[in-house]
Design a protein around this nucleic acid. Structure first.
Lengths: 139, 139
DNA sequence: ATTTTTGGTTGTGTATTACAACTATAATGA
DNA sequence: TCATTATAGTTGTAATACACAACCAAAAAT
């Protein structure tokens, strides 16, 4: 079972939706270049959906399509200058929000909370079979 | 900004979707009866959507429509016997899943993790202005 | 008594997806 | 090497999930 968050077209920040930010971020975390086909898995969507999700980013010149080095069918998405700036901008906006959340956690417990959150998320992941097919069988 | 989880029609358990379970659960937690109009807010959807989400539950006789005591326009949803059983069934299934997650958290930290999770969620809520209009302004 | 507001339904448009069909390239294998 | 099969991406289409608007009936306000 796939669980998606923030899938609406609603703009998150700077005219970028959450899904779009995810794509920018995945690219950024890999040095600004990512194979289109890698995105299917990362976003848990069909390849046709990936095509369509990437569209607006390319149209707005936040990313560029480049043919992959070793496979002329495959496409790499490359962060443009503008895309990089946008990514940082949105990150700033997001961390602003996170800071707000943090401010509401008693100072002496912040570390504990973040730590516990990590444990919880990893537990769910392991319980759901990580990337392997759903061992998360609810019958 | 509205954030929705598990909105797909995908069956969660026992032929009940997550949204349907939420409705059953809200009713159950209020003694088996809930005003249809209360659901709009609880589910964060338009009233037209509520109407449509409730449809299948009524058709499957998990809930019944009853005219509200003090307003002949308003409708109350009442859990049927069957609906109550279904609710418990799905709860069992869900807690089975949660147990699986818990088993993967070191025993001596379980309490801490749950505790921290509560703090985190409350912080987000307060940060986003609880039920008041979005103070969660990202900008 | 008339007007306005509110609860619910239905009609309709838009967005988000998956699935299938198709093209082009790559890999396999006889 | 040539035929087969697999893979990358795009486009067409259908299903779903929702909001918004128009509507009716009942309630509240004037």
């Amino acid at each position: 079972m796939v669980m998606r968050l923030f899938q609406s077209e609603t703009v998150l920040c700077e005219g970028v939706t959450f899904a779009q930010f995810c794509i920018l971020d995945h690219a950024a975390s890999r040095g600004g270049r990512i194979g289109l086909s890698d995105l299917h898995g990362l976003l848990s969507v069909e390849k046709s959906t990936t095509t369509r999700m990437v569209g607006p980013l390319v149209r707005r010149k936040l990313m560029e399509k480049a043919t992959s080095a070793h496979d002329s069918r495959a496409i790499d998405l490359v962060l443009t200058e503008k895309g990089n700036e946008m990514h940082e901008q949105v990150w700033k906006c997001l961390s602003g929000f996170l800071e707000g959340v943090m401010r509401r956690i008693p100072g002496d417990r912040r570390h504990e909370v973040l730590d516990a959150l990590g444990i919880f998320i990893r537990s769910i992941r392991r319980c759901c079979g990580e990337n392997a097919g759903g061992a998360c069988d609810c019958e």
